[in-house]
Nucleic acid binder design. Structure first.
Lengths: 354, 354
DNA sequence: TTGTAAGCGTTATCAT
DNA sequence: ATGATAACGCTTACAA
């Protein structure tokens, strides 16, 4: 089945069928109906390649996961992001292709870049997760190829969606300070990720604003995995003077950290207060219920698509930089008791706000 | 840059450039070198749409996640699968597009099917996770469109990769029986997924082979999520006579189940033996170290791609049905102590094989 | 409102 | 080994 055949069967020209298919309003009702009937009868769907070739649009966008942040793949965070991206794509009638650099060869990444981008396989790309120096980003920018980052890049004037990681982390740590904790530590993400840096900066800022010393030894790295969080907490516990509270830069790591506490015969918040980041605890099922920074992950994904499509449609416009709001969920792991504002949806089985 | 321009610059015909680009051996070394130089100089990459249109191949495959198994998305299992699929795609120079049905409208799924499949957006699809009755599968089969299931479908003679879930589960439960457990329960997956059914069947078979009664009330459903496993274990614990061991149909659920035990002041294997399924415990960081059925998830993904490409290249051939091997990892949660065959890589921080 | 016709950038077939 | 040339199936001015 091709446009041509449908046209013949409907007794119209190819262009008319094309108009009907594409919802062009300049078609008489009568003709539209007739054509549509033939289309439906034969279950016709236009060929994607032909369409792309003629229109110079593939209606495909790529989700690029840079090598080196492959660890995000294992984080439920990423799944929520993907879910938001896919939904937005479905809504906009776009397809999503997964561009994951194979961990090994540099050459394969070149290949991906060249073949996909220059071969016009996709109309634009979303780059999941911002790292300090990403050659691909600078290259896309040079080529004027449409893209958007999930996570700001302070060094480049490019489009992105993000949350205000610094402020959110700062608020969380201020909250811990208000609880009266004296030695607040942190479990941080990989040092090459902007989000890690920003959250750590927020942690430091809060301490400084409160006139507290910043002790670098109270921070351990957990590479955004549950296991990493587990390890990092073990490191902190092994310190001569362990922290009495920990701000953890992701819920996944926090989940591991809580387990490390339990395995050490300790518990939060009694022995050590814990504050997370992400708002994923519903999936993680933590006990105690994890206090955390809730960020609208799925919305980040949707926004990324929205911005990308804007850039695809007007590549010359100035970069779009959008911040989405976060909020603190004060549950039990930070030391908060039952709170009046603790909504039912924030509860979890086994969670017993004291 | 187009083939045409490269041809002009190299002083050859368009066809010759095409041959060079596609590695056709029927080109003299001299000409090939000259053309390649021009290609490299201009960083030329052939246009994907034009290629697809002319060759009737998109070099894209789809990974279809049926609505209703959206829960698999949150399972690390899925990520490993995707990773295998992507790697195999990278190797074969294929692109992977994510086909996730929006949870809401039936209409959108129709749309996906029609637009993607009939519009020839992809050369074939991998269907992640086999459910009992999937209209899309039967439809693909009718249309003669290349596809492969991850997970067998006993009702249909179609291509798939899978592990022998029944046997593996049976072995696991036999192992529990040998430990001397008297009341062995199970936490099962969604009843519409073949994998759930097969694993439950294995559980039942093992009991029967040992002359044990099968008590339906000792099984609870955990929908393949950590939270579901947590809940299911709570249900089992609330029983008048709780089980003394539980076979859990996925590690993610087992992780939740272990947490439910801890939250109830119990522990495995002392109070209740636990056996998982998947081999993901490294990510989950469980304490005690989870005994589980290890299945080669990434290989399942790679195999799926391999089979799919076979089917794309020879659609008329008979369906390919491949089973990959599993193995039991006997750690501590089932009651096993330190085992001579327990390799170092099977250990995990905090795991203390008694 | 509808039709005509010229691309879009390749691959593939057939000569030479 | 190389080159013409005809598809591939659609979009998009432009004309009518």
């Amino acid at each position: 089945m091709t446009l041509e055949e449908i046209a013949r069967l409907a007794g119209v020209s190819r262009s008319t069928v094309s108009r009907v298919v594409n919802g062009d309003p300049h078609v008489s009702e009568e003709v539209r109906a007739r054509v549509q009937r033939v289309i439906d009868e034969h279950n016709f769907h236009p060929n994607a390649a032909a369409r792309s070739l003629a229109s110079r649009r593939t209606r495909i966008i790529g989700l690029l996961i840079p090598r080196g942040v492959a660890s995000v793949l294992t984080d439920p965070f990423f799944l929520h992001l993907v879910q938001g991206v896919v939904e937005a794509c479905n809504d906009a009638d776009y397809l999503l292709t997964l561009l994951i650099e194979s961990s090994d060869a540099d050459i394969s990444n070149e290949r991906v870049y060249e073949r996909i981008i220059r071969g016009r396989h996709v109309d634009g790309v979303i780059i999941a997760s911002s790292v300090v120096e990403d050659p691909i980003v600078e290259r896309l920018q040079l080529d004027g190829f449409p893209f958007v980052l999930v996570g700001r890049n302070p060094r480049l004037n490019v489009s992105f969606v993000d949350v205000d990681n610094l402020s959110a982390a700062k608020d969380a740590v201020h909250h811990l300070i208000e609880h009266g904790y004296r030695r607040i530590g942190s479990i941080v993400g990989p040092p090459n990720m902007i989000a890690s840096i920003d959250r750590y900066a927020g942690y430091v800022t809060a301490l400084q604003e409160s006139g507290r010393p910043v002790d670098r030894s109270l921070s351990a790295e957990g590479n955004f995995t549950r296991r990493g969080g587990y390890r990092a907490m073990q490191e902190l516990l092994a310190l001569p003077a362990p922290p009495d509270a920990v701000f953890v830069a992701s819920d996944t790591m926090a989940s591991g950290a809580l387990q490390a506490l339990r395995d050490a015969g300790l518990s939060a918040p009694d022995d050590i207060g814990v504050f997370g980041f992400d708002g994923l605890e519903h999936q993680l099922v933590s006990q105690p219920v994890l206090s955390t920074v809730i960020q609208p992950i799925q919305s980040l994904g949707r926004e990324a698509v929205t911005i990308l499509l804007e850039r695809i449609n007007s590549p010359e416009s100035a970069p779009v930089q959008r911040f989405l709001p976060t909020r603190l969920a004060l549950r039990t792991s930070c030391g908060c008791g039952s709170q009046p504002h603790l909504a039912a949806e924030d509860m979890i089985e086994g969670g017993v706000p004291a």
